[in-house]
Every structure is written in C-alpha cells, then in structure tokens.
Nucleic acid binder design. Structure first.
Length: 857
RNA sequence: GCCCGAGUGGCGGAAUGGUAGACGCAGCGGAUUCAAAAUCCGCCGCCUUAACGGGUGUGCCGGUUCGAGUCCGGCCUCGGGUACCA
C-alpha cells in the first residue's frame, strides 16, 4: 500500500485497466443518445507540446463528462500527416517523408497514451495512408463530375529555388519562407474547388451556427466579403477592336458624377492587348512582380500608366475620362476595372494628386462644409450628406439611399444593373509537392485531361523518390508518370501536382465514422455519428480550415457521401487559448537578448538567476511558447515529474479555457498539492468507519452533505458552460469543506467519492484510485454522473445585505421563507438602518427577495 | 485605415443590474517539529483608526438607475483579425 500520492504508479495502472475493458471504443447503442466530441487532429511533428495537452484535456473532459451523463460518446483521433515538414526532414536527414512521419506518429501515440485520454484508437487514421487519401481521390473525382473541381490558369507565388508554388502564408516580405529567395508571380494552370458557388450559402448559414464563437462567424463573414453595388460599362472612344465597352463594378454608384479617370488592372485584357507599347508592357510586368506582403502594400506607391484610351461617361456622352493602368487595381476582384473618384476615396485621391487628375465633389457634409483639400471626404454610408451632383433622389440623403437610387436609375435606363459581389475566391489546391494526395487525373495527348477511373484508385505515391534536388520528385520520377489514358488507353502522363493539405483536413471528421470503408464514407455510419456535437481547436483555424470544412460538407452532401443533415458538420465550436510562459534572457555584448530555457533558471518571488553560475537573468513577458524564445515546457517532463493528472488539472485551472493560460512552476506545484491532498483524504478514510459518532456528527454531516450537493450542481453548470476554471474553484471549495469537516467517516467517504466523480473528467487516474481506495464499485469511468438533490440546495436562513441609499451598511439573517413585508419590517428595525432613519419613514424601500434590501432616506 | 475583443488587488482570475475581489498563486502571522520538509489554521485592495468603524476603489469623463465592474454616450490604452476589395 502506497503511503503517498504516486502518479507514476497510479496512472499506468488505470490506463491498462481502461484498455483491458475496451472502454472508449465507440459503440452504436440504441438505448443512448450519441455524442461526437472532436479536437482538431494534430500534425505529427513527433513531439507533444503543452498546447496539445490543453486542447486534448478539454476534449477529454467533455468526452468523459458526456459519457457519465449517459451518452454513447464518439471520441476518435488521427493524424494530419501530409505536408512540407516531412519533405524538409527528408531533405535534411536523407530519409523518406513516410518513414519520418510514421515514426513520429508512433512516438506521439505513446505520448498521447501517457495523458490518459479517453480516445477511441480503433478508428485511428492518418491522411498520408492510401486507405485515406485514396478515398480523398474518389471524392475529388465525384466533385469533378459534379462541377465542383476545375482547372484554370492563375497567378501563383513561385519560389524559384525550391521550385514550387507557395501559399500566401508562406511568403514573408516577398520572399520564400524557406529559401529566402524573392518570390515570383507566375501564371500556372491549377486545380480549383468551386467554393465560390457556395458564397451566399456559407454566409447565410453562419446565422444558424449559434454554438460557434461570434468571433469566428464574424471573421468568416468578413472573409466571404459580400457587397452590393452597380455593374455597368463605359463606352470606349479609341480602343482596339473588341474593347467597345469596359465593365466596372462599384459599391458607390452615388459618386459616379465625381469620376475623373478609369483605372484597370495590369492583368486586364485591355492592358494586355495594349502591350504592343513596350513602355506599357514594362509597366505591366512591373505591376505583376509587385509583392503581396502586407508591408509592401502598406508602402507601395500608387502608380499608373496613361494608356491614351478614353471612355465616355454613361450619363454624359461629351464627358471623356482617361483610362490608366494602375498598380492598385486587382484583376480578380470585381471586373478588374474601376472608375476613380478622388473626392470621395482616399486611394483615388492619392492617385489623382500624383497625376494631376481633376477632383470633383459629388456631395458635401450636410452642414455644407466641403472636404479638406488634402484628403478625400469619405463619410459612412449611413450618414446624411448634401448632394451637389446627385444621380438620383433628393438633394439631402444618406449614401445608402443614394446608392439604391443610383442603381434603380441605371436599371431603369438600362445602362447598368445592381449586383452582389463576393470577395471569396475559388480554392486553389494544386501543390508542386511530393508529400500530399496525388490529384487523380491523367493528361492524354488525344483526350486532354481525363479523370482516373475509380477502380484504379488509390493512385499511390511512389516510394522510390529522392530529395537531393529541389522541385517535385514526382515530376522527375523515371516511371511513375507513365500510365494509360483511362479513356482511349493510349500512353499518357499522370498529373504530378498533389492536393493542398487543407483538403485532407476538410473531411476527416466524416471519415472517422467509417475509417476503413471502401467508399469515402459509409452512409449509414455517417448518418448515425454525424454531426460533430462539439469541436475544439485553436482560433488560428477560424477561417481556412473551418470554411473549407463547411464547403466540403456541402460538396459531400451533393455527391451523396453525407446526409443532408450534415451540411453544417460542427454543431458547436470552441476555441481554446494558448499556453504561454515567461521569457528569460541575458544580454550579450551587443545588447541583443540571449534566451534561457525555464529549466536553466531559478525563479523566485523577487527575480530569476541562472542555475549555472547564479548570475541575474532578466524576466520578459509571458508569450506563446516558442523554440526561438526557448520558453518551452516539455509536457512529457511534467508527466514524469508530477503525472498527467496534475498537468491536466493545471492547464484547465488558472484561466478561462478560451483565454491564454500562463504556465508557472508554482501553479503546476499547486495542482500537484491539491491532487495529493485528495489522495490523502481517501487514504485516511479508506473503507473504514468509526464505532461511535464524533461530537456534533449530525450537524457536521448535514453541512457536508449540503456542500456536496452544492458542488455537484455548480460543477455541472460550469462544465456545461465551458467554465472549467470555475468548476475547478468549486472543487477546491468542496475539498476544503471535506478537510475541515468532523462528519462521520461514512459521510466524508460519500463526499470524497463525489469529489472524485466531479474530478474524473479532468484527473481520471486519481479519480479511479480514490474510487477504489474508498470501496467504489466498478470503474469511476463507467459510473453515472452524480445528481444534486434539489432539497439540499436551499438554505433555511439566508444573509441579506442592507443598503442605505445604495451603500452597504449591514446585513441580517432572515428565514428563507420570509416574505417582502417581513423583510421590510426587519430592515427598518435593523440597528444599521435606524440612525439614518432618524425616526422618519423611508422615502423608498426596495426589497429584492433573496438578494438585497435598499433603504432610501 | 476598417472590423472585433479586452482593461478588476502584487499575479491568474470570480461576480442573472443587487455584499466587488470567489478560487488559486505569491506574501504575512501562527500551530506541529529538537530542527526542517510535509501538513494544518488564520490574515491579506488602498487610505484612515488603538479598536469599533469611516472613507475610497473595477482604464478616463459624463449619463440612466433606489443601486453600475455590469447598461448608454464620448475618450484612452492594449490585444486580435483583415486590407490597394473599388
């Protein structure tokens, strides 16, 4: 028998017992409602980090709590296993990406096991295995057939050293994040998913996602970027053939009378057609090269080139506007052409200022004060302004009203129409990479681009590849590309692009419902387990992953792989905060910081010193753990030191789950102390009981029982509301009560068993141990969630604070059943009130039953 | 620039418009001990008071209310998202 809390002994023991009883393997059970809880699956970097511990502790809390509540819980885990790090590792260490990835998975799985999570490993999947990506290829073919996948030529970020396309996120200050080389914009033929078909639906359905954070819904809304405006053509005066009219899109048609120039993108067909002018061709080329990073755009000068072409104002044929090519006009938004209104748009203003174009006001502030000549006058659309050059409607109106009036006029007169525009663009998924899902199409000289036959899937990645030269090994593989055309049978070539890894993670939640099915999903299993009832992950996926997944669910519904009810796959979403840590540094001779890891530093209340030589170390702010700042805590070290339960308890205890939490050695210690204390209580009480009742036993038992039921009610509420830090505070309170109590052992045992049940979703190993030590039957993991006794939640007597003129002056004990009149009488006679009354009746007396009394004199 | 969010003790954080600071950390005092560790108990916003108490206090200014950390208006600061989007 152990004499102290020993997680090293307890934790493996219970992990083995859970494993033996096959507890967490999801089973279809007609007698129970199902509950699907999912945490965003990890990239198998090979090393668990503390952020994982927090993420998966939360998911496990929900899973175990719901299981105790009587749900048939579905809690699977897998690996987001494709991606660039494996290729980089392959290049650095001369291994195969698959070897590296599978080794990491094995390693991380062991680390996961040490956390004691209630995961169903029987449904484990890895996106890099043909069993998974083969079905993804089948999905692709279905989407192709359904018109949701297509090929087009598009501008991409091309890294000339690594010879690959880079995502926008991988371009930092205009350079490839890995090569450091200036990125070029190249026009390549790429595969796209038609997410833009769903712009309106993806936007409209956000309203229904009531259990998603408002923040995420708002971010998606802004990303989709719906706007209403006017689309119309400007007739050209002296343009080349085929350009009789140039279409523009504007959200501010009310300012049309202030137009002073037209600007088109460098990629606009007209701009290209005019490239016979070498100076313009050079200008266009320069625009295309222009960087895409935020910093560059910030400083980018507005530059233009006058094409010499003129267009006619739609409302005045005698009014001609010059057409410029401008570097700030984008081809892939609107029509790639705009009309410039310098008076009411700052960007147009800057441009007009630079090239001495006219500035024409269409409206002024209602008070009549005109725009300052140094900047554009841009009032909010909802503001009322006085039009001096209105298109339609009254002289004084809001921008909104004027916009609608202008659209109405354009439509009535037939020269334009109101349109809805979205910022959301189609999703380019082609990557010139090896370690990804091959796009299952074939290029045939005779038939063109031909989809692979489903019976030929999976199109497996070849194993014999080398990474000694940059670029895509699939491209230079001796034989892999060679194949027969699925249509005509003639020799043909495989597509060598692979899919963006975001595709892999866009449907894994559905694949979990039938991970070994020979179709992407098993409709019956999908119908049973979908949707994900609770999804948990970082807010960094607020747009990309979550928007792609919402699109994919729709595509899968369309192709018959998911039921209609799974159109929105995640019923509830929770974004957990990050784990941070203080930073420690000394300064080198040049005054630059030299970072020190937490385990190299002695931290006390008054400062920090280096363990090595005792010299002082500066303490920097607590920030997200990162290798560069060396402020990283290794979760496995913590588990070896204090156990998984202590780590799990701590990451949930100090801050609300949606907020960042700071890892501190003191906090981790406090968690351990608490767990040891609970263990000690169980050890003291065990299964014993005393011969004679202790003094005051009845009252003690009564108040302990009340505290126990209070705790059950409070913790349950807190778990339901994702207020895990508060739930933990309530458990501390019950623990303190038990520690103080002189109740008979039998009552204390009941309280400690209840405490163990409440703690079980967070510290499952300790809970099992305590349960066993105190004679609990079976496994606590299978015990039903305790229910509070409503009768125990009401007090006979309550404390009512008394205010005089809104200031607290005293308090009184009143029976819980006291009515308003009784409370009023008691309050007016109360010694803390009498001096203020001075014998007179109060002006007003407010009694909020059960809450407060306020006497106004 | 635009769009969100947040500002509460030494720190992390609690408070359906109703006793501000639950709970934890740190700190202080005590018990136990030969001593320490461990453990247990108590105190703990600021000013004032011997004490009882009183005053004051949730970023700043104003408002609504019997009563405001909470609601409204206007600022300030910090954090996040996003951007030549026409």
């Amino acid at each position: 028998m152990a004499t102290r809390y020993d997680p090293q002994q307890i934790e493996p023991k219970w992990q083995a017992k859970w494993h033996e009883s096959d507890l967490f393997c999801a089973k279809r059970d007609a007698s129970k409602p199902k509950y699907y809880v999912l945490e965003m699956f990890p990239y198998p970097s090979g090393k668990l980090h503390i952020g994982h511990v927090r993420n998966y502790s939360m998911g496990d809390l929900v899973a175990r709590y719901k299981a105790a509540q009587g749900y048939s819980v579905f809690h699977p885990m897998g690996w987001d296993a494709f991606g660039m790090p494996a290729e980089n590792a392959a290049m650095a260490n001369n291994t195969h990406p698959g070897t590296w990835t599978r080794h990491n998975i094995a390693q991380m799985k062991e680390q996961f096991a040490a956390l004691g999570l209630s995961l169903d490993w029987s449904r484990e999947l890895a996106t890099c295995e043909p069993e998974y990506y083969g079905q993804q290829q089948a999905l692709f073919l279905d989407m192709l057939a359904a018109g949701l996948a297509y090929r087009k030529s598009a501008q991409v970020n091309w890294d000339p050293v690594d010879m690959t396309v880079l995502a926008n996120e991988q371009v930092i200050d205009g350079r490839g994040w890995r090569s450091g080389e200036l990125v070029e914009r190249r026009e390549l033929t790429q595969w796209f998913f038609k997410i833009s078909d769903y712009s309106e639906e993806l936007l409209a359905a956000l309203d229904g996602l009531q259990n998603w954070p408002d923040k995420v819904r708002l971010m998606q809304k802004n990303w989709i970027g719906k706007s209403r405006g006017l689309k119309f053509g400007f007739e050209t005066v002296n343009a080349p053939a085929g350009f009789d009219s140039i279409e523009v899109y504007t959200t501010r048609p009310d300012t049309l009378m202030g137009a002073s120039f037209m600007a088109i993108a460098a990629d606009h067909p007209l701009a290209k057609a005019l490239e016979t002018d070498p100076a313009l061709a050079a200008f266009n080329a320069e625009c295309r090269r222009g960087g895409t990073s935020a910093a560059e755009i910030e400083t980018a000068e507005k530059r233009g080139y006058d094409t010499g072409i003129r267009v006619r104002h739609p409302l005045d044929p005698t009014w001609e506007l010059p057409v410029w090519v401008a570097n700030f006009v984008l081809m892939d938004y609107g029509t790639g052409a705009i009309f410039g209104v310098p008076a009411h748009d700052q960007r147009d203003f800057d441009f007009a200022h630079k090239y001495a174009l006219p500035i024409i006001s269409t409206f002024v502030a209602e008070a009549g004060v005109d725009a300052a000549p140094t900047e554009a006058f841009v009032p909010p659309k909802s503001e009322t302004v006085r039009f001096v050059r209105a298109i339609a409607g009254p002289e004084i109106q809001t921008g909104e009203a004027a916009i609608e009036a202008a659209i109405d006029r354009a439509e009535a007169e037939g020269w334009g129409r109101g349109v809805i525009n979205y910022r959301l663009r189609d999703w380019g998924i082609s990557r010139q990479r090896y370690w990804g899902c091959p796009i299952p199409v074939v290029h045939c000289d005779a038939c063109g681009v031909v989809p692979e036959k489903k019976e030929n899937l999976p199109i497996k990645l070849p194993e014999d590849v080398s990474f000694d030269t940059p670029g895509n090994p699939l491209d230079r593989h001796a034989t892999w590309r060679n194949c027969a055309c699925p249509k005509c049978g003639a020799p043909a070539r495989r597509e060598t692009d692979t899919m963006d890894t975001f595709v892999d993670s866009s449907w894994y939640y559905a694949r979990f419902t039938a991970p070994h099915a020979t179709t992407p999903t098993d409709p019956d299993e999908a119908a049973y387990w979908m949707n994900v009832d609770q999804y948990i992950g970082g807010v960094e996926h607020a747009i990309l992953h979550l928007l792609y997944s919402r699109f994919f669910a729709r595509a899968m519904v369309k192709c018959g792989h998911l039921p209609e009810s799974a159109t929105e796959p995640f019923n509830a979403l929770f974004n957990q905060g990050m784990v941070c840590h203080e930073t420690y540094y000394t300064e080198n001779a040049r005054g630059l910081p030299v970072w020190h890891a937490p385990d190299e530093v002695n931290r006390s209340a008054d400062g920090a010193t280096l363990k090595a030589d005792g010299s002082a170390v500066k303490i920097g702010p607590s920030v997200k753990m990162s290798k560069s700042k060396r402020n990283v805590i290794d979760p496995m070290e913590q588990i070896h030191l204090n156990g998984a339960d202590a780590a799990r308890w701590f990451v949930l205890s100090d801050s609300p789950p949606e907020r960042d939490v700071e890892w501190t050695a003191a906090g981790a210690e406090a968690a351990l102390k608490h767990l040891a204390r609970v263990w000690r209580f169980a050890d003291e009480i065990g299964t014993r009981s005393e011969q004679t009742a202790p003094p005051g036993a009845h009252d003690e038992a009564r108040s302990l029982t009340k505290a126990m039921h209070r705790a059950i009610a409070d913790v349950t509420d807190c778990f339901e509301g994702f207020a895990f830090n508060k739930a933990i505070a309530k458990m501390y309170e019950l623990t303190a009560q038990i520690g103080r109590s002189n109740a008979p052992l039998a009552d204390k045992r009941q309280a400690i068993q209840t405490l163990a049940q409440l703690m079980a979703p967070i510290t499952p190993h300790l809970a099992e141990e305590v349960w066993e030590m105190t004679g609990g039957a079976g496994l606590i993991a299978q015990a039903p969630w305790p229910k509070p006794d409503a009768a125990q939640l009401v007090d006979d007597e309550i404390t009512l604070p008394i205010q005089v003129n809104g200031k607290r002056r005293g308090e009184m004990q009143v029976p819980a059943t006291a009515d308003k009149a009784e409370i009023e009488a008691l309050a007016l006679a109360h010694p803390s009130v009498l001096p203020y009354l001075d014998g007179k009746p109060p002006k007003k007396l407010i009694v909020v039953p059960g809450r407060i009394v306020n006497v106004v004199v």
